[in-house]
Amino acid sequence: MPTPANQAALEQARQDHIGRLLHRAARAFNVSALSKLHARGHTALSLAHTNLLPHLEAHGSSIVKLAERAGMTKQAAGQLVAELEQHGYLMRRADPRDKRAVHLDFTPAGWQYLLDAQAIKREIAAEYRAKLGEATWDTLNAALSSLLE
């Protein structure tokens, strides 16, 4: 069993690393975006919904493809899709290429969400740019892009 000092050092190491900072920054972005979405009337949305919706292509997707892109089970995606349907953001229809499959499309409310989400992303980016300064903002974006290549 580790000593209390070893436990404290291990806990510190678990919290202080780039992965944790990236996760916390992404969560802060998402929480801010959700708050702004709620202010624009999208009060039925949760973080789980807003984490799923970016994986739905503008021309629609199947639940299977949506689940794969979001990194979740088909059942979990199906539950979130059912909630988004209930709130009027998505609708199901028969897939034109496979009549047995279901195709998901945005409703007019879903399209309004997409427009609002884009405006909010630009708003948050402007806030970050103002806080960091243009040079640091550009460096941050370039560094993150390099990590993802």
Rank of each mutant, 00 (worst) to 15 (best):
Q12T: 13
Q75H: 11
E11D: 05
A48K: 04
R122D: 11
L147N: 10
L84F: 08
D116A: 10
T139C: 05
K99M: 08
G60H: 00
H38W: 10
E149R: 04
A130V: 08
L45T: 01
Q75N: 11
A8M: 13
I124Q: 04
Q118T: 11
A9K: 07
S146R: 14
R14F: 04
T43Y: 02
E127M: 13
A101F: 01
G19T: 02
D105E: 12
S32C: 13
A67P: 00
L47P: 02
I18D: 13
L21S: 09
D105V: 15
T139E: 08
D138P: 07
V64A: 05
I18P: 02
G88I: 02
T107Y: 02
Q7D: 11
L45A: 07
L132C: 04
E83A: 12
R93I: 01
F106G: 00
G78F: 09
T139P: 03
A26V: 13
A25S: 15
K131N: 05
A8N: 06
T43W: 10
G133S: 14
W137V: 05
A28N: 05
H49C: 02
E83W: 04
A101Q: 08
A130Q: 08
Q7E: 15
T139N: 08
T107M: 04
G60D: 00
K65Y: 03
S32Q: 11
D116L: 13
R129H: 09
A126C: 13
A44G: 11
A142M: 12
S32M: 14
P4I: 15
P108T: 11
A117L: 08
K65L: 04
S62A: 07
D16A: 05
L56A: 04
L144Y: 12
N141C: 15
V102L: 09
G110Q: 05
S146A: 15
H103L: 03
G110D: 03
G71D: 07
H103E: 00
E149M: 08
E83V: 01
S32A: 15
Y89N: 02
D16P: 03
Q112H: 12
A58S: 05
E83P: 01
A117W: 00
A9N: 06
E85W: 00
K74D: 15
A109V: 03
Q15S: 06
Y128T: 06
W137C: 05
Q15F: 06
L45K: 03
R27T: 07
A109E: 10
D98G: 01
Q75P: 01
A76M: 13
Y113R: 02
A135Q: 14
A8E: 05
H55V: 00
Q79K: 09
S32P: 09
H23E: 11
T73D: 06
L45C: 10
Y128C: 08
L84Y: 03
W111K: 03
G60V: 00
